[in-house]
Amino acid sequence: MVSTVMNTEVAMARSASPFRTHKSIAIGFALLACLLALGALLVPGFVSSQNARSILLLAAFLGLASVGQTLCALVGALDLSIPYIIGGANILLPSLMVAGLPAPVAMIVVLILGALVGAANGALSFRLQGQALIMSLGVGFAAVGAVQIYTSLGSQFGGTVFAPVPDWLRNLSAFNGKFFGLPFPPVIVIWAAVAIGLGWIMYNTWFGRSLYAVGGSRTAAARLGISEFRIWTVIHSASGAMSAITGMLLLGFSGGGFVGVGDPYLFTTVAAVVIGGTSLLGGAGGYGATVLGVLVLTVLTSLLVGLGLSFPAQQAVVGLLIVPMVAIYARSPHIRNQI
C-alpha cells in the first residue's frame, strides 16, 4: 500500500493546475450532459417529469447507500457490509412493527442497530487495514443472519416479511409520493439535504478535515493528534446508519420486506464512488463527486433501458465504462517515475 500511496503523490504532483484538480468533476458533468443529450435525442419520453422523477428516486436510494462507501473510500477502506445492513433493516423494520412497536420507535431502533453494527465493523477491522473489506463482509453476514433468525422466530417470515407499511413511510419513497403537495417523493429531498449537509460537514468541521488528513497521510495526521481509530470507527458507524436508513426507505418503496433488496448495492456503491472520482486509496474526492457518479450511473441506466437494453446488457455497459472513466483522471504513474 505504501508504494501505491506514493503513486498518487507523484500523480498529484502532475495535476497541479486548478482545472486538473477538478478534472474528474468537469468530466463527470460533461459525461452527464452527454448522456442527457443522447437520451433526449434517442429515447422518446426521456425528457419528461415522469422519467426525471424515476431517475431521481433511484438515484436517491443509491446515493444514500453510497454515503458510507464514500466516507470509507476516503480513508482507503471498502465497506462490503452495506448490502447486508440494507437487507437486514428492510426486514427488521416491518417485523418490529408486527411485534407491536410504533413505526417511529421501530425506525429509531433499526437506525441505532445499524450504527452499532457499523461501529463494531469499524472497531474490529481497524487493525486489518488491507483485509478490512473481508471483515466488513463477515460482520455483514453475521448481522443479516442474526436479523433473519429474529424475524423467523415465532413466525414464518425469514427473509421476506409482510407487514402493513404506514402511509407516511410509503409516501416518503414511493414513486407517486408527494413532498408537501409537490409531485415528487420526499426521499429525493432527503437525499439532497444529506448531500448538502455532508458536503458542508466535510469542508467546515474538524471531523471532515481530519477524515481527509487521515486518508492523505496517516502518520502526518497522527502528528496532529488525530485519532485514526476514532475516524475509522465513526465513518463505519455512519456507513451502518446510512445503510439502515436506505433499507428502511426501500421498504416504503417496495411495500414489503425482502432481505435481498440490498444485494445490488454491493458493487454499485463502489462503482458510483469510483465513477465520481473518489480514489479508493483515500484522501481525494468527496461526496459531491459521488453524487455526480450516482447521477451518471442512474441516467446511463435509464438511457440504456430506454434504448431497449436488458438488465444484463446495462450491467455490462456500466462495467465497460468504469475503466476508461478512471483512466481519464486516476492513472498511476509508470514505475520508472516512482523510483
Binding site: 503523490e9 498529484m12 504532483a13 474538524w206 471531523f207 478535515r209 492523505g216 497521510s217 502518520t219 502526518a220
Partner: peptide, 28 residues
C-alpha cells in the same frame, strides 16, 4: 509525517490551527 499530498497549500498550512479555531460541534 508532514504533508497531506492531495490537499491544497492552504489546507496543509491551516490544518495545524483548526483545532484552536473550533466553534460548536467542531465547526471550524
Amino acid at each position: 509525517e508532514g504533508i497531506f499530498p492531495q490537499q491544497s497549500i492552504f489546507e496543509n498550512l491551516a490544518i495545524g490551527v483548526y483545532r484552536k479555531n473550533l466553534g460548536a460541534l467542531g465547526v471550524i
